[in-house]
Simulated assay, not measured.
Amino acid sequence: MSFKENLLKKIQISQLTRKVLASFGSPESASKIDKDAMRSLLDMSPYLYHRERDLDLFIEKLDGEQSKILVLDNELPIYRTTVEDVAIRKSPYTKEMLSIGNIIKILKDSDVKISRREESVQIIQKECIDRLDLSYNASDIEMIAKEGADSLENGYTDGILESLAFFAELLGYQPAPKAFRIRHHEIVGAVTEKQGGQIWYGPAVVLSLIDNSLGMIEDKISSLDKAKIEHFQQVAQGKEKPSVEGKEVFRYLTDAVLMQ
């Protein structure tokens, strides 16, 4: 696959990961995870599906007899053992529960369990991303910028958003914190968190979903600086001139990626 296709897949992996993580309740709650999102994530992993008894298992073969086995339930445990061992621990037959050794296995699985819950999701996310070739050269980045600039010229909002999503992924830009959000605007930028809950935001890209005007605000602005936040909003709404605007935003983003 091309770099752009691999980068898009990485974005999809991150989105699915966030969706699954957001579905977790507290460890004591009976809330159900988003299994559909988790299945989609596992489809991009090296794990293969296997049905054993009433268990949905996803298996990554290791050297020797053991495998890494994820059980698709609300705990999402990952084990390093055999399918038969997981079946006894998670869905034992009555006759299997007559064995003292099996009872110990059922009550205590720390000897074979690698992870559970959020940690398991993050392990799968990493394994999905590790399969992708995310190396790139200048022409790859320039192509993404050109497609974004062409979309801007043609008023194609979805194309602009796609290019911005690629650059946000490459630069680690994040959606605007609450203090910087503006209705009908797509905003992504660099976030720095400091002690005391203070957040610094910027540089940031702002796209108006009303008229497709595109601007870049280069300043890093504190979430506690009301005057600068007001200026940020004025720029975003087209009432003040941005640091960079129009197609030049994509040139700015290209340079930022290539300078990393």
Rank of each mutant, 00 (worst) to 15 (best):
Q174L: 15
N6T: 06
D36M: 09
Q122S: 07
G172W: 02
E52T: 11
V20I: 12
D54T: 09
R117H: 11
E5N: 13
D140A: 03
K178Q: 14
D211L: 07
L132S: 04
S222E: 05
D85A: 09
I144L: 15
L76I: 14
Q174Y: 06
E186F: 15
R116Y: 08
L41A: 04
A149H: 05
A227M: 11
E169Y: 15
D225Q: 08
L164H: 00
D133A: 08
Y93P: 00
I106E: 00
L224Q: 12
E230K: 14
S213R: 15
T17V: 02
T82Y: 03
V86F: 00
M38E: 01
T94W: 12
I182M: 08
R183Q: 12
R116A: 10
D255E: 15
R181H: 02
H184I: 08
L209C: 06
S45D: 00
L134M: 06
E142C: 10
I106G: 00
E169L: 04
E153Q: 12
L161H: 08
L170H: 10
I217Q: 02
A236K: 01
D130L: 03
D54H: 12
R117A: 12
I11Y: 01
I123E: 02
L170A: 10
M44W: 01
D225A: 13
K32I: 06
D56W: 06
K4R: 12
Q260D: 14
E230M: 13
A149T: 10
A168D: 04
N154W: 07
K19T: 14
L42D: 00
L70Y: 09
F24E: 05
P27H: 13
S14Y: 09
G155E: 03
Q66G: 02
F232C: 08
G64W: 05
M216N: 05
V71D: 01
L170R: 05
A30D: 15
R80P: 00
A190T: 10
